[in-house]
């Protein structure tokens, strides 16, 4: 039987949660026994090659591309997991949610102390995804099955959760592995 597949993505995040995935250290060899990686920055596969058992999402949605990727993950993954504060609460990127978008853009591309932009035009290359009005946690965009808290979640949290899911056991995380910071 083919191994189940795992896909991961970093949306509006800092890749810290992916670092935490790698932080399972030598257990990554055990993980490779259990699963194959599909679309993921870990193996640099850009598009889904088929149905995945588990999708891990880092980061919330701050632009239209994040939403597209997230919906793509929902379509291809049996179980979708929000990993880390940004995916669950919006996190640091969501700090802009109390500031009007135009003010954010002006500060970043026109008025910021280190900005040089004599034309005053926002970056508008068609390849750049449009920024959303605010940053959304993943579960406000698609259905999310599990949430792994932490900034980032400890490697043990990710490990135990993945192993429980892949071996059909309940995900009983001990108190010490549920942390919001």
């Amino acid at each position: 039987m083919a191994k189940p597949k795992v896909a991961t993505a970093s949306l509006a995040g800092c890749f810290g949660c992916h670092m935490s995935i790698l932080d399972i250290d030598e257990r990554i060899l055990q993980l490779i026994e259990l699963v194959d990686f599909d679309k993921s920055p870990v193996d640099d596969i850009k598009e889904f090659t088929g149905r995945c058992a588990v999708g891990l999402i880092e980061g919330g949605c701050c632009n239209e591309e994040n939403v597209r990727v997230l919906k793509d993950f929902r379509k291809h993954c049996d179980i979708l997991i929000s990993v880390g504060e940004c995916a669950i609460c919006g996190g640091i990127p969501a700090m802009r949610n109390t500031i009007p978008l135009k003010e954010c853009m002006d500060e970043a591309y026109r008025n910021g102390p280190s900005v040089y932009n004599p034309t005053g035009v926002y970056p508008n290359d068609p390849a750049l995804p449009l920024v959303l009005n605010k940053v959304y946690p993943c579960h406000e965009v698609v259905k999310i099955d599990y949430h792994l808290q932490g900034c980032p979640p400890p490697a043990d949290t990710i490990w135990q959760a993945l192993v429980a899911l892949l071996t059909n056991k309940p995900m009983d995380l001990p108190y010490e592995l549920i942390k919001y910071d």
Partner: peptide
């Protein structure tokens, strides 16, 4: 929240300006 085992709030975030 830890004690109650809250993994994510069921309500939409308000992001109030404070």
């Amino acid at each position: 929240a830890y004690r109650l085992g809250i993994m994510a709030p069921r309500y939409p975030f308000q992001f109030p300006d404070r």
